Amino acid sequence: MMYNDLLKDIEKLIGLQLHSIRPGAELTIEAIEREKCSLLLRNAQGNLRKRSLDEIRNLWSELQKKRIVHVDGFLHGSGSSRNQPETILANLPYIEWLKYNGKKHLAYVEKSTHEFGTLREMNPVEQIGFCELLSKIQSNLHRFSYAVVTNDIKQCIDDFNKDSSYNLTVLEQGAYALSMPNNEVLFLSADKYKLPRGVYPVLHDQTVSANIVAFKLNNILYYAEKKGEINVLLAGD
């Protein structure tokens, strides 16, 4: 299904009150401005705002590739009211929602299972397959080239994405993986992981002499160590 077909379906939602997965966050699509690449939305309080269609395009691309997406994590703080693009997509008949590890996800089910302008929570039996799919996606071990430890993860990721839109994975609160063409970058909250800010090369297949575990991600232990004047992370068992 092409992106233009998706926009035609979203146009069918114009003027409808769209219920949100999160109660109280209903919205109405007032207009789609294709030439301006924007949506005109009215929230539950009656306020109007514009939102970029690029969010919908990128989410749709991710859904077609992986069939399931955690919207909050994928948009990684791209403006406020991140539930708005989530709400629009969830009100399409071939997209359902489910919770995985306590987080809302959208799933592209590739067939119509509910009416335009309505929501459908995936039934527990169908959820099993999608949860297994998501588990496989998240269990693929990331082999990071380096880690960026910062107090402002959103700003750092936005700086990386100024000219390109790389795939982002939420590993856990305060830890994000950004997949680039030739490597993967790990972004870490300095406050959560109690590490000095900076860029850390990540060394793999090394003998780990450090005895202080910095953190654990995807069942891999990471040790902080200083080599000369450079802070590094060692990936070990």
Rank of each mutant, 00 (worst) to 15 (best):
I230H: 09
R57V: 04
A147R: 04
D237G: 02
R51V: 02
V213G: 01
A25L: 15
L186R: 05
L234S: 04
V71I: 15
V149H: 03
P85Q: 11
Y94C: 10
K136E: 14
L16H: 15
S189V: 05
M1V: 08
I212N: 11
V71G: 09
E35M: 05
D158L: 07
L178C: 06
G46K: 05
L48R: 11
G174I: 03
A44T: 07
Q127A: 14
A235Y: 01
A25C: 15
T118I: 07
N231A: 10
N43T: 01
N101P: 01
Q173G: 15
F160K: 06
T207R: 05
E110G: 10
Y166M: 02
P196N: 02
L75D: 13
M122F: 10
H76K: 09
T113K: 00
M180V: 11
E35P: 01
I10M: 07
I137M: 12
S165Y: 12
L39P: 01
L203E: 06
V71E: 10
Y176P: 00
K66F: 09
N182Q: 13
D163C: 09
K12V: 00
E35W: 00
K194Y: 11
N83W: 08
L119D: 00
S179Y: 12
E26C: 11
N182C: 06
Y3I: 04
G24E: 13
V185R: 03
R143D: 07
L63P: 05
N47A: 02
E33H: 15
D54P: 02
E121K: 13
V232Q: 09
Q17W: 14
R49W: 01
V202I: 15
F187N: 03
P196W: 02
W60V: 06
V71S: 12
R143E: 10
S165W: 09
N91A: 13
L27F: 11
F144N: 01
Y166D: 05
T207S: 04
Q45E: 09
K36I: 00
I230Y: 08
G228H: 07
V69Q: 09
I95D: 07
L217W: 11
N43Q: 01
R51E: 10
L106S: 14
C131W: 06
T87W: 06
G77D: 06
L40Y: 05
K104W: 05
K162C: 07
Y176G: 01
P196S: 03
Q64C: 11
D163K: 14
R34G: 03
A235I: 01
F160A: 02
V148F: 01
E11P: 04
G77E: 08
A147P: 04
N218W: 03
W97L: 06
S165H: 12
A210K: 04
I32M: 13
M180F: 07
F130T: 14
N183G: 05
R143A: 06
L18T: 09
R57L: 13
N167K: 12
N47K: 05
E30Q: 11
R143V: 12
S209K: 13
L217G: 02
P196D: 03
D191K: 15
F144D: 03
E121M: 09
V185M: 06
F160H: 07
N182D: 14
V199Q: 09
L195W: 02
E62K: 00
S165Q: 12
L98S: 10
L178R: 03
S20T: 10
Q45H: 06
D237Y: 00
A44Y: 00
L13Y: 03
F116I: 08
F130L: 14
A175E: 08
L59M: 04
D191G: 02
S164R: 13
H19V: 08
K227V: 11
R120V: 08
M2Q: 08
K216W: 03
